[in-house]
Computed example of a mutant assay.
Amino acid sequence: MNPFAVNALICARYFLRKRRNRRRRRYHVHPILVERLLEGEFCKLFSRLQEDEEKFFDYFKMSIRSFDELQARLHDILKHSNMFRAPVQPIERLAVTLRYFVTGETFKDLHFSYRLGASTIGEIIKEVCKKIWTLLHEECLSIPNSQEGWLRIAAGFENTANFPNCIGCIDGKHVRIICPKYSGSLYSNYKKFYSIVLLAMCDCDYRYTYINVGAYGTDSDSNIFRRSSLFTKLHNGEIILPPPKPLPHTTEPLPYMIIGDAAFGISNKILRPYARSNLTHKKKIFNYRLSRARRYIESTFGIMSNKFKIFHRPMNTSLPNTIAIIKACCLLHNYIRERDGYRIQDTLTVLGFDQSLNTNSNNSRSGDTIRDKFSNYFVSPAGSVPWQDTCIF
């Protein structure tokens, strides 16, 4: 017999047997999912939640007014049509996404409560995150584009943190992830877990003014900052900062500065604390005053992670989706903060994040000079505060 015919018969027999042994799908749509419009959590609970402002806030971590405004703005771009089955409505898509952020549950958990397929929930969350970023990032999360905007931020830090000429606090935080395939040790940080870094800057109202998401867990804050668009714009003069101004009750102008922790290299744009060895009284006072102002970025991370429990566990989505989720959470944090404020207990702990590693020891001579002038001011009668001496011992 022709060998080609033999091979064809063998292949035909193999595929026929495989087809017979293939497990047939019992349902086109599982009966549990068919009952979504009657038994799903959204249909049974949402209308009841709207009758109680406090319960609604506990469920979605935003007020009814803020939710209604957000879903109204997203309605048209989240609307789908389907000739064969009823599509998931925009308001339910938003509700599922927010509940995923708030609870930190897996797609499988939400699959049983909302009566939606796990893969469908994954696609919904991915789409909603991207639409939220596209629609709102210019409005709710952007660097000030005028000197007046920077001056408002500086005035806030001077009034609330007693730190003049400060235009923001910057820090990096590790967000836990499941190790991406074929990534080796790129995402393994110094604490021996896998992460990507969220580098963020905030104002004194616990709002993000800049974020950079997705750097490897092995990267240091300083290196991430040097590769960021914020660093590029600062050094290219694309960001319009106010001219140097004398500190209160002094005459020598000093530039407006961003404050960070010891992980950042000091420069004429960044102030960092003095090294902890052999600290003089003046240096201790400066470190205390800088730490007192820098707590705003720690509190901002804490408010967001305590609001969105998704940061309390490793994110098990693909890397692009994880980045989209983090960006959407940062934006929603600002959106909620501007409309609903915050709860003071949310500022007391920072859960779901870990400090980035200090791997940079570069010093700038001009940055050292500026830092020394700030430290001299903080121990002078013009710049000291009554309680500072009791806080450093």
Rank of each mutant, 00 (worst) to 15 (best):
H249K: 15
H235E: 11
A215M: 08
R226C: 00
R227H: 04
N236M: 15
D221A: 08
D221M: 03
N236A: 15
E238K: 12
I240Q: 15
H249A: 15
N212Y: 05
L230A: 04
F231Q: 10
P243W: 05
P243D: 10
P244H: 00
I211H: 03
E238A: 13
L241W: 00
H235P: 03
R226I: 00
G237Y: 11
D221T: 05
I239N: 08
I240Y: 05
G237T: 10
A215S: 12
H235K: 13
N236E: 07
R227I: 00
S229Y: 02
S229E: 09
V213P: 02
N236S: 15
S229P: 04
F231R: 06
N236C: 15
S222N: 10
P243K: 04
L247W: 01
R226K: 08
S222G: 07
L230F: 14
T218R: 15
T232C: 07
H249T: 11
S228P: 00
S222D: 01
G237E: 11
R226P: 00
D219I: 14
S222V: 10
D219F: 14
G237S: 11
K245I: 06
P244I: 02
T218K: 15
P244V: 02
F225I: 09
P246A: 01
H249N: 15
K245V: 10
S220K: 09
P244S: 01
I239S: 02
P246D: 01
F231T: 09
S220Q: 06
K245D: 00
T218Y: 10
L234H: 09
H235G: 03
V213C: 05
S229K: 01
P242I: 03
N236D: 08
S222K: 12
K233Q: 12
L241P: 00
P248T: 04
K233D: 03
T232A: 07
I239R: 06
Y216A: 08
I239G: 01
T232G: 02
S229A: 08
E238D: 14
K245R: 13
G237C: 12
R227M: 04
R227L: 03
G214I: 14
H249V: 13
D221C: 08
T232V: 02
N223F: 02
N223I: 09
I224V: 14
L230D: 07
H249L: 13
K245G: 06
H249P: 03
K233G: 06
D221L: 08
S220A: 13
